[in-house]
Structure formats: structure tokens, C-alpha cells
Design a protein around this nucleic acid. Structure first.
Lengths: 143, 143
DNA sequence: CTTATTGCAAACCGTTTGCACGTTC
DNA sequence: GAACGTGCAAACGGTTTGCAATAAG
């Protein structure tokens, strides 16, 4: 049984369906399925390909093109955050607030840097600009 | 006249030829030419394509493949720093010490964040790892 | 029924590579 | 002349897109 059937929602902020609605995206099967994979299991870091792989377990796995399209739409509407990593592949993060990342190059793993470790960056934007985002990636190698 | 003929070097640390030597790279015409473009005019931020474009003004413009190969070699040997930017293209910076960057998305411009603005990040590496590099890109939009 | 979404395959774009030729040591 | 570097064109890998078929409102 698939889990994209909305529960009566006790106090939890949003069901996947509601998230889509709020974002102005039609609740199609593919988007509900992917949304369930992404948002119902805490913070996740992944690439399009990883999600595609994972989606193979679904009854109707969306095509890779749809995965890409969906991820782009989710990111555009603020449901996901994109992370540019050294060496092409784009990563996505279900945690959308401002925070920084570790990237283990040897294992190709991306994970959050705990808030406590982050001295707040307070960089003023140059004249005529505003800060869109701050991307911080601390690249790690095995010691 | 091309400028890759080494001057008697008064007190300046290194000529392009010396840089190549130190890095263990043979001083071929292409590497000398590109090195002159890159290192004889202060700090520079650029992509492979920009350099290729600029190299068209040389008497013997290296091919795009050679530009890529050369940039990779320079980066490997620490003569250049690579910078991963949102949206594929790799940038290079002739300033190799640790420092952070602004990226103006509307103009596709990359430039340094002045040292004074940077509260030193002091993030401890997780067990079993060491920090290879810290990539900070503050993305800007026009205000 | 109108408009949005999907899947497929082909296109795309930045980058890398295989290989024959030229250059450096 | 042995090892390395270069240029070209073809391959590559991740991502996007055109289009005909399908599903949502």
C-alpha cells in the first residue's frame, strides 16, 4: 500500500497533498509518490539518480525525466533546496532553511553541519544587490 | 610580442616559467601563453570558455581541449583554484589561498569577498576526516 | 473540454578522452 | 628517441526538451 493517501492530519503542519497544493502544483500520482518518499522520512540528501533508483520500488515508477522535472518544480517552489557540489551532480535537500553542509569526497556523502558548529556568517551584500542564498560546503577527505 | 619571455626577475617571486617548473610541468608554448594570460594581471576569475575566448588573441591559440587539460593540470598542482558554482560551469580563480566568493546570478560574475567581511569559519571536522577545503559562495541578485 | 503533466527518445552542453602528430628533454 | 603534450573529433554524463499520449480540474 502506498502512503500518499492523506491522513486526517492531527497536528502535523502539512500532508504531501497540502504541500503540493500550497506550492500550486497539481497532486498527480507521480508528485504524490515522490513527495511521500521525500517528505515523510525526515531530512534527506540525495541526487536525481538516487531518487530515481529509490522510486523503482514504487508501483508506478516515474521516468527519469519526470524525476528531474519534479525536482526542479519542487526546488522552484521552495519545497526542496538545491546544492551545487564540486564535480557536476546536483544534490537536493529536504531541509530548506539556511544551513551548511559537509561533503565527504571519498564516499560521495552529503550531510548537514550541526547548527552549533556554525558561527553565523554575517556578510553584507554589495551595493545594488541582495543575498539570494549562502552556499557553504566543507569538503572532507578521510583523515 | 608575446610576454612569456622571462624577465631577469628583480624581486618578484616567480615567473610563469618558474611556476611551471615548480609545479613539475614542462614549459610548453601553450602553457606559457596561458600562464601569462592568467598570472601576469593580478587576480582573475574565469571559466574555461572565457579563457578560450581570450586566448583567441594569441598568435597560436590553444584548442579548447588543451585549455581544459591545462586548467586541470594547473588546478591539480595548486596554481589555480576551482570553484563549483550553481549550474554546472566550473570557475577558476588565480588566487589560491582560502577565501570566499560572491556570485552575481544576474550577470554571471564571480568575485572575491573582502577578507574583512569574513568572520572566520571554524568548523571542526567529523571523526575520521580532515577538511580538504571550504567552499563559500554567497549568491547575489540585483536588489 | 481545456490545460497541465507524463514518458520517451533525442537534443544539449560542458567536459573528457582516444589517437595520430608534434614537441621537449 | 623516449616520454610527454597537443589538436581534433568523437564520446561522455548529467540534465533538458519536443512532442504525442494521458490525466487533472
Amino acid at each position: 500500500m502506498q502512503t500518499n493517501i492523506d491522513s486526517p492530519a492531527p497536528n502535523r503542519p502539512v500532508t504531501v497533498r497540502e504541500k503540493l497544493e500550497t506550492a500550486g502544483l497539481r497532486p498527480t500520482r507521480q508528485r504524490l509518490d515522490l513527495g511521500c518518499l521525500l517528505f515523510e522520512r525526515g531530512d534527506r540528501h540525495f541526487t536525481a539518480e538516487m531518487l530515481h533508483e529509490e522510486a523503482r520500488s514504487l508501483r508506478y515508477p516515474p521516468s527519469l525525466a519526470t524525476i528531474y522535472n519534479t525536482l526542479n518544480q519542487f526546488a522552484e517552489r521552495g519545497l526542496l533546496r538545491e546544492i551545487a557540489i564540486y564535480g557536476a551532480k546536483v544534490w537536493y535537500d529536504t531541509k530548506i532553511g539556511p544551513h551548511f553542509h559537509f561533503y565527504r569526497e571519498d564516499r560521495e556523502e552529503l550531510f548537514d553541519i550541526p547548527e552549533e558548529l556554525i558561527p553565523m556568517l554575517n556578510i553584507p551584500a554589495p551595493e545594488g544587490t541582495r543575498i539570494e542564498a549562502i552556499d557553504v560546503v566543507v569538503r572532507l577527505k578521510s583523515a
